[in-house]
Design a protein around this nucleic acid. Structure first.
Ligand SMILES: NC(=O)c1ccc[n+]([C@@H]2O[C@H](COP(=O)([O-])OP(=O)(O)OC[C@H]3O[C@@H](n4cnc5c(N)ncnc54)[C@H](O)[C@@H]3O)[C@@H](O)[C@H]2O)c1
Ligand SMILES: NC(=O)c1ccc[n+]([C@@H]2O[C@H](COP(=O)([O-])OP(=O)(O)OC[C@H]3O[C@@H](n4cnc5c(N)ncnc54)[C@H](O)[C@@H]3O)[C@@H](O)[C@H]2O)c1
Lengths: 221, 221
DNA sequence: TTAACATTGATAAAATTTTAACAGCCATTG
DNA sequence: CAATGGCTGTTAAAATTTTATCAATGTTAA
């Protein structure tokens, strides 16, 4: 069975993109544990879907598995990164360094995923100047300057909702390409600029819906 | 045009559930602003989808809009909450009160969404006893006892990945129904228990993929 | 060397989700 | 009071996504 030439337009289904990003986390964990090869059924077992779906998701990726053998974990991870656009260093900035912004700065291993944190901004004088994981918090007044200078492509918004749109506008006019918006404010952006919304409370609601499907089980201590 | 009787089994499509939870956030913001009525096209404009999809999503909900008039925001919000399973108070606990756990405790308005935070647990003596937004951090050794006592139905895991599975097991054996897992550890749980995974880094990756579709625009200051 | 085995790559069928279309209803206006 | 216009509820069609299936292939063991 021959692998077809890679499709010109790597246009993946959105659900596939979502799963691929999660597979990557799983693959990295396996790799850390020293594992070299994984099969679609093992990955499906961990992810809780089917081997068929895993193969279908991986099908479009440039890298090939070995028929009968499974996938080389490192190669597969690299193929996913490349396909998602994380092959070159993706520059990002954090805007708003309160509790949330600081947690992200300290805790998300950007480097491990082909991204580089190259700026943290706030407007609170007591926060400006703090150094977090090697990055100094800067005054938000120089946001545009820094974003343009470093050709930053993505930003995370962790400011109060009331100023989110204003900062989004400033980011967009500085040439940013995508915004990860953690505030509750829905943003208006021009076409060609992408916004990804993320609300933990929504995950709770979705979980509540799942839970509603069956009654609370009895404790089993 | 007659509204059909409510379907017996309110089995919503999963993408619909996801959108409904986001509509709710939007509706709450409109309500705060004093708005009383909203049309499917206005909601679609803010959410960035189509009026048709909005109507299709709302279609199965018990509450009715007024033909020609739009939806009463409060009624619609209430219908969504009810459908998602947030009509009665859903009890939740936070497990792990480091940076992430603390941010959630302080920042997520559980009460506004039909949920009640009724416990925060950690194993660090310097953290145990702290009071966060009116809830004391307790020793994780009494986790099972408290979960059973209060009939808690959902938990958020914000502990190090290395202890995530162990704590998930303890939660499950205490009768928990759903786990919102913020750690990178994929969890094994028995059937009938639901896990919702949430990784901000995955949102970044998904955003990177969106951004890859077109080149970075020139700044426009 | 050959046969058995496990597992992918690929395709086709099934299922789900989105989009489109429009009849019917309610408020408003003259 | 009748006509108009806006917008929902509902259905059906289109598009997308998931699932099933199986030939092909490298590996291992006899
Ligand atoms: N998506 C989620 O799940 C989630 C969870 C928690 C919080 N949040 C949201 O994240 C945002 C931040 O939350 P937080 O807990 O960090 O709040 P916070 O108040 O601790 O932090 C906000 C930060 O923004 C800074 N700021 C205010 N105005 C600014 C401006 N004009 N320019 C630059 N910086 C500015 C403040 O100085 C502060 O440091 C809020 O909108 C909150 O609702 C989202
Ligand atoms: N999903 C995301 O987007 C995201 C973002 C940031 C962090 N995280 C994850 O969230 C988790 C916590 O991150 P953090 O920044 O809060 O780390 P942290 O180290 O600040 O907090 C971990 C807390 O767990 C407590 N803990 C350790 N062992 C425990 C046990 N057995 N029982 C109870 N409590 C215990 C520690 O005392 C500490 O307070 C980590 O797994 C991290 O990877 C996820």
């Amino acid at each position: 069975m021959q692998k077809k030439e890679a499709p010109l337009h790597n246009n993946l289904a959105w659900p596939t993109v979502q799963r691929l990003s999660e597979y990557l986390i799983i693959l990295e964990q396996f790799a850390e544990g020293g594992r070299e090869v994984i099969s679609s059924s093992e990955l499906a077992e961990v992810y809780s879907n089917t081997p068929s779906q895993v193969r279908q998701d991986i099908f479009r990726l440039p890298n090939t598995g070995r028929v009968g053998q499974g996938y080389r974990i490192k190669e597969l991870a690299e193929a996913i990164r490349e396909t998602l656009g994380l092959d070159s260093v993706t520059k990002i900035v954090i805007v708003g360094c309160g509790r949330m912004g600081m947690t992200l700065a300290q805790h998300i291993p950007f480097g491990e995923h082909g991204m580089k944190l190259c700026g943290i901004f706030d407007n609170d004088p007591t926060i400006i100047g703090l150094e977090i994981e090697g990055t100094k918090v800067e005054d938000v007044s120089i946001l545009e300057k820094k974003v343009v200078e470093s050709a930053v492509s993505m930003a995370v918004l962790c400011v109060p909702a009331s100023v989110a749109q204003e900062l989004a506008d400033r980011l967009v006019s500085s040439g940013i390409k995508g915004i990860l918006n953690l505030t509750r404010q829905r943003l208006k952006v021009p076409p060609g600029i992408y916004v990804q919304y993320e609300q933990i409370i929504c995950s709770f609601m979705q979980l509540a819906y799942k839970c509603k499907q069956s009654p609370r089980p009895a404790p089993n201590l």
